Simulated scan of single mutants.
Amino acid sequence: MSDIILATQGVSKYFGKFLALNDVSVSFERGKLSAIIGPNGAGKSTYFNVLSGAFPPSQGTLTYDGRDITGLPQHEFARIGIAKSFQITNVFPKLTAFENVRVAVQARHVRFGLWRPRQAYEEVNQRAHELLALVGLVQHAERPAQDMAHGEQRALEMGMALAAEPKLLLLDEPTAGMSPEETRTMMDLIQRLAGDRTVILVEHKMKLVMGICERIVVLHHGELLADGTPAEVQNNADVKRVYLGQGRSGSHAAA
């Protein structure tokens, strides 16, 4: 089995005549916690959308687990083992935390039918409780999602994503809008989840990811600026220049 779980080769993305990503080639190793970072307008969100299947690349290829998945319909990504959590929280606000996760588990494990054995539903309920425990929300199982704090809603969304039992978890700005305490809790959760699966997160907070990630990919103006360990990236002259505000000239890529 290859050590590479996800890779882009020569990926570019145009929106009309606007070039948002330019020839990005990156390989993500299996079982590692990696981060994609960069200043505002670096192309991070566009790249995330390519990795998660929301945007097909205009040029280049996307490979998962040794298989070319370029242009694969987005709904197929969960089936092959890729789950994602977007920057905007996506939960059912009027359902409880337990009900939200149970719906996600049912979507994977139960097919429509009139004659389902009771045991099948008990297994769904049990798995929902296990996922709530995994993301630290057991005590909030009966609370409506709309009554939960922002950080708790993000953890709930992550629990829903894990219902697909993914090999790869993609997280877009998982700490966006969080307080410092919520941010610390979320980063602890991400580290725990990374113990059992590959995790790739997109962040604009460089200092935040340096302490927990094994690998950092830096984008700038839609191009790959740096790629390496946190120490290598921190000592990279181009990265220092960009984060000191001395950006390159030229057209800016989408965030």
Rank of each mutant, 00 (worst) to 15 (best):
Q87F: 10
K84A: 03
R79Y: 13
V91M: 04
T63G: 00
P73R: 10
T89A: 09
T63A: 00
F86S: 00
I88L: 00
I82E: 04
Q87A: 06
K94T: 15
F77V: 04
I80F: 04
D65I: 02
Y64N: 00
A83Q: 07
G71M: 10
Q74I: 15
Y64T: 02
D68H: 13
H75K: 10
D65S: 05
A83Y: 09
I80W: 05
Q87I: 08
F86Y: 14
I88N: 03
I69D: 04
D68L: 10
I69W: 08
P73Y: 14
P93I: 11
I82N: 03
R67Y: 13
V91Q: 03
T63C: 01
T61S: 07
T61D: 09
I69H: 05
K84R: 15
K94Q: 15
Y64V: 02
G66S: 09
P93T: 12
G71N: 12
I69M: 03
V91D: 04
I69A: 01
G81E: 12
G71S: 07
P93G: 06
L72H: 05
R67E: 15
Q87T: 11
K84F: 07
F86N: 01
P73H: 13
L72R: 07
P73W: 14
T63Q: 04
S85L: 06
A97I: 12
T70M: 03
P93S: 05
T63H: 05
Q74D: 13
T89C: 10
D65F: 02
A97C: 10
F86G: 00
A78Y: 08
A83N: 09
F86Q: 01
Q74E: 15
Q87N: 07
N90A: 11
F77P: 01
F77T: 04
T63S: 01
F86K: 03
L95R: 09
I69P: 04
P93C: 06
G81S: 11
L62M: 08
T96S: 12
D65N: 09
L95N: 09
A97W: 08
S85R: 09
E76I: 10
G66N: 11
H75N: 14
T96R: 01
N90F: 08
G71V: 12
A97T: 08
K94L: 12
